[in-house]
Design a binder for these strands. Structure first.
Lengths: 135, 135
DNA sequence: CTGGATCCCCCCCGATACTG
DNA sequence: CAGTATCGGGGGGGATCCAG
């Protein structure tokens, strides 16, 4: 709140309001671990907590759990507890989560097509600012 | 380091390595202000620093400058200084930056089509955990 | 007008220890 | 096996002042 005092003619394009769907989506999948969890589940189908933990190298228990809770809350995946000993918990994408994978593929395609350009731009930019510097 | 000791058969899918293009792209556009700058420039074409500052409500000078530098480094936009008094600086998307807008549109489309579902899922999730809570 | 420099707070996140 | 609770460091990012 505070960004847009009125919902009327003040907001010309909604992309700049916090409630804009696109921005909220970016906050979700822009999350480092969230997208990895989604991709992993998209590839493997259904995974246990320990499988996810092993698959996504570098994630801590805390972040994995936190990420899974968030995605479950968003309705992107389901959490299934099998009350055995020891407990078994499985995670699986919902149809909603599966549909998101299509979108992630578009991102992947752009990245694979253009990230090399980004690399070159970075090298050039860094080279200019490392040696010659400013002014 | 430590994530992938070997580049050989250890890494089965590159999406989980930090150098994966998709992940790097997500780090870029997942940045709160970066995507807003890109969208703004995509709509308006060419904008001055002050125009961007006014257009993207809530961004601080520091973050705006920092974001612009990052995007310039990535080759997504150009920075043009007109040495008048006072100085005038214009920002404009490069062809590379323009191509990224197409990708952002896919995100937008998914968001507009499905974010309502996410909202419903959240409400339901919160309602269940606010009242009944945990066992 | 554009933005660099500095201070500083907050929150994210990793590490560790403990529970069912 | 699958978490929760807690502590603490580090960095993101806002506010402010200053420079070109």
């Amino acid at each position: 709140m505070g960004v847009s005092t009125a919902d009327g003619p003040t907001a010309r394009f909604d992309a700049f309001v916090a409630s804009c769907p696109s921005r909220r989506l970016l906050e979700t999948i822009g999350d480092k671990w969230a997208s990895l969890v989604i991709v992993a589940l998209g590839l493997e189908g259904r995974m246990r907590y320990s499988e996810l933990s092993a698959r996504i190298a570098g994630v801590s228990q805390k972040m994995l759990t936190q990420t899974l809770r968030g995605l479950e809350r968003d309705g992107l995946l389901t959490r299934t507890v099998t009350p055995s000993v020891p407990v078994r918990v499985d995670y699986e994408l919902t149809p909603l989560g599966l549909s998101l994978i299509e979108t992630l593929r578009h991102l992947k395609e752009w990245a694979e097509a253009h990230m090399a350009e980004v690399d070159r731009a970075r090298e050039e930019y860094d080279r200019k600012n490392d040696s010659a510097g400013r002014s």
